[in-house]
Design a protein around this nucleic acid. Structure first.
Lengths: 362, 362
DNA sequence: AGGGACATCCGAAACGTTTCGGATTGCCGA
DNA sequence: TCGGCAATCCGAAACGTTTCGGATGTCCCT
């Protein structure tokens, strides 16, 4: 059996290609009887529309693109799978496909976007890990191409994004540690080209200032997003003459490294040194002691971002809708002085600084 | 500036569409001078070929598909991100894109494949988590559509796959536990529709028989792949009159649940009860104690599978190439009686049963 | 009887690309 | 002088779909 097309169905039923197309398309200018005959024949032949041809004609590919961030040395955040699942759940519901691309040595990141956009490969893209002065976003804005971003930028344009309030999250973590009595608090911040690093760092400074706790600049260090880098940096901190009593990190991977470093120095996490992370990756809960961290509802973000992007594509919203989500502080054993052998019962605290979900229209 | 196409370049340079196409395509029947003129103009206009049109004409989409497994209740294996990264790294190198689809309530899994295949959306697909009497594989074989599978099946056809020798892996784990002195060993096996579950179960039985250790069938239970299910099942096992002294599971997620169950019963993992997992997900190393498990080189598998698929697509291999990889037993604190407070130094042992990488041609 | 309204169908162009099969030159050797 | 060959170029068809602008016929109303 050759490949079924509109033409083969047309020939088999005696109708024209146009009529077959319209029958299959559910238009109302085709007789019920004819439609049935055509549908039957289509089924018999196992017809599936050629999506390339359709996309070519409609100038719509029913596909959205996602380019894996290739920033750091380590591959994507551990919660990447969850993010993808969130995106996937929504694309599936609306009949869209998801095209994933990995920039390589040969093909630069921006070229991937060029291909996606100009090649008509996708109808819109989702970006993650927004950067300072983000070229990708600039490129897309310039072309008026639909997109939605996980994270804010410092660009003076408006577009659709969803972000977690990292400033509030990191501030909450800092306040928590201060309340536990810590004064010498270290903060390991991710590379400053990443927007989220800035907001979190800002939250740290603000909370310290608010409580009048002095910041020792030697305890504020930049660090790559990996476990190894975290361990390395933490060892340096712990070997200072006047080491910190608490170490906060810009993401959980780094925090895991810190915990290892603490152990390697013969100290105990949660008792001798408090550790705080950010993200709440799956492993955070299973560490011993459990990692106190700030949770981001990543699956949900993936979903919402997709929804938002689809609206932009349909032209339903002006592309300026943005949402700032309130993060949630998750307290576990890594920041608990009283008990550390067994992870304490998990406690979720909604921050008072931002109420649930806040919509912001620029 | 309107969209650049072959036509706009042709008009601008005064050459025909054919010549423009051939110049851009690098054919040798176009004058060097003309070619340069055309390339210049193409660059000036920011030309990018329309990939839909190209795909339609060439009947090749330069895209491979991946359908997320939707089998169990829980979302994909934690190492899914790594698998995807492996695939991505190879597709990028060869200029292919990756189309990811998530079956939803509305669109059944097999429909996704139908769309992919008949719709000309992809040139080949990668399957993971092969199943007993796998309909997907049957479908693809029937259509003579290129594909490559992570995992074997019981179908009597030959096709390209890569698998980890789960039988050998589970046997090695079992032998390890027996050597530690365990006699009452429980095994929590994943749903038997999954092929890998069968092989691992088989490895368990064989090792037990080899050492003459009796299997108590009440200690062999089927269990979903999630942490929760693992915990639940483990509690049942531990409450038996004559409970096991060691519990092995078919994947790491279940093992984490087991470890929680053990703790909840007031016993200590690695001391009172040995626990063994399978997969070596990232979290396994960070548990306390660390989880003894069997490692699968998942990134590498993603890469190789992609390479294999591309060869099948190019028609370079007959589609019958298959590889069985030797798993690696990773010993950590969860199966160590002597020491459990701190995870012991990680030890990797290559199994003697299968040498490095073994090629099998059916 | 004429006209309009409606139901049903179709031809042809278009989306942007590739490619087959020539067509047009200019030049060389015999 | 002419056949032939190489170097360049191009027209047109094809890939499979959607859609615009009718075409045809039927029936009813006045």
């Amino acid at each position: 059996m050759a490949k079924a097309t509109l033409k083969t169905i047309a020939r088999a039923t005696g109708y024209s290609i146009t009529t077959v197309s319209r029958a299959l398309g559910g238009f109302d200018d085709v007789n019920e009887e004819t439609r049935r005959a055509i549908l039957d024949e289509a089924y018999r032949q196992g017809y599936e529309p050629n999506l390339q041809a359709r996309a070519l004609q409609k100038r719509r590919s029913q596909t959205i693109g996602l380019v894996l961030p290739t920033g750091g040395p380590s591959f994507p955040d551990p919660f990447f799978a969850e993010f993808l699942a969130g995106i996937g759940s929504e694309t599936a519901r609306s009949g869209f496909d998801l095209l994933v691309s990995t920039p390589s040595a040969e093909i630069s990141e921006i070229d991937v976007y060029r291909r996606f956009v100009a090649g008509g490969r996708v109808d819109g893209v989702i970006l993650m890990r927004s950067r300072v002065d983000d070229v990708r976003i600039r490129f897309l804005l310039e072309r008026h191409f639909p997109f939605a971003v996980f994270g804010r930028t410092d660009l003076n344009e408006s577009y659709a994004y969803i972000d977690v309030d990292g400033r509030a999250g990191q501030a909450a973590m800092t306040l928590h540690l201060i309340e536990l009595g810590h004064r010498r608090i270290a903060y390991m911040t991710p590379p400053s080209t990443l927007m989220f690093a800035r907001f979190r760092l800002q939250g740290f400074y603000e909370a310290m200032a608010q409580k009048g706790v002095p910041v020792d600049e030697r305890l504020v260090v930049e660090c790559d997003l990996s476990e190894n880098a975290g361990k390395h940096r933490a060892l340096q901190l712990l070997k200072l003459d006047n080491p910190p009593t608490a170490i906060m990190t810009g993401n959980d991977l780094m925090a895991i490294g810190v915990m290892n470093a603490v152990r390697e120095m013969g100290m105990r996490v949660g008792r001798d040194i408090a550790v705080g992370g950010f993200d709440d990756i799956p492993a955070a809960e299973h560490l011993n002691p459990g990692l106190t961290t700030v949770r981001q509802p990543i699956f949900h973000i993936g979903q919402q971002l997709t929804l938002r992007l689809l609206q932009v594509i349909e032209g339903e919203i002006s592309g300026e809708q943005s949402t700032l989500l309130a993060p949630e502080l998750i307290l576990r054993g890594s920041s608990n002085h009283r008990q550390h052998d067994r992870p304490e019962q998990e406690v979720g605290t909604h921050l008072e600084t931002s109420t649930d979900i806040r919509k912001a229209n620029k």
